[in-house]
Design a protein around this nucleic acid. Structure first.
Lengths: 129, 129
DNA sequence: CTGTATCCCCGTAGATACTG
DNA sequence: CAGTATCTACGGGGATACAG
């Protein structure tokens, strides 16, 4: 085993970061937080992500125990995603990270608003990012 | 401005993740936490990182306001790195992330020990990773 | 001692078309 | 509806050599 693999896979912090250190995972967690969402709902709420990448990310998060994937064998197919207990436990930490950034960075309120409405636009529902 | 740039640079959480979402930054924060360290000390404590990458990461962290870089115009040159207030404020969040991972994942205690001693070995000093 | 300068690899993520 | 399959582009990260 190489040393950097030791870092990545055996250190708790390294492993935690690899579980949510990708571009979209923290956002996906925040978007699913309230209730089960279908794949299409997820894709609509984060409309800048491609379906391939969304699928990839969800599969990895499932493997990491962050989300639950429920597949209903229907026509048309339906798949629902929800957070596991582990995924839910991540929420307060993500909020703290958000607060930390807000506290030490000067934001243009308009841009933050843009960011919030960006996700809201496509679903007519508040998503706190 | 493209939408994904909006996500990355205007959303507090997106910005926070881009500030510490790389492979080494969280570890660098933990390693510097106690006191100022010279570049060489940092490189020795995280001996699997190449000097180029360490330099790159430190420069980015400096730009993000996480670390302070003090350069002493001496022969031989001396540079000391320390955490800013912003960097220090990140510590409790990193510890929570660590605890979160520990709580939901079954670790082989031997491997965690290896991970700890891996960083300890090169400096004869405890570094809590 | 503290870095640069190159070069290169590989993985993430994106675009697009297609499928059960 | 919920994905695959392919191909491509880009950039982080690594190895090595050199510099002030």
């Amino acid at each position: 085993m190489k040393k950097n693999e030791l870092m990545q896979y055996s250190c708790p912090l390294g492993k935690a970061m690899s579980a949510l250190g990708s571009k979209w995972k923290p956002i996906i967690v925040l978007v699913i937080k309230d209730r089960k969402l279908r794949f299409g709902e997820l894709a609509a709420r984060i409309n800048v992500i491609s379906r391939k990448v969304l699928t990839d990310q969800l599969r990895e998060m499932e493997a990491d125990g962050l989300v639950i994937r429920e597949e209903f064998k229907e026509i048309p197919p339906r798949v629902e995603y929800s957070l596991t207990e582990k995924g839910l436990a991540l929420l307060p930490i993500l909020y703290q990270l958000e607060e930390w950034e807000m506290r030490y960075h000067v934001y243009d309120p308009e841009k933050v608003k843009d960011c919030k409405t960006f996700l809201e636009n496509k679903n007519n529902k508040k998503v706190a990012i």
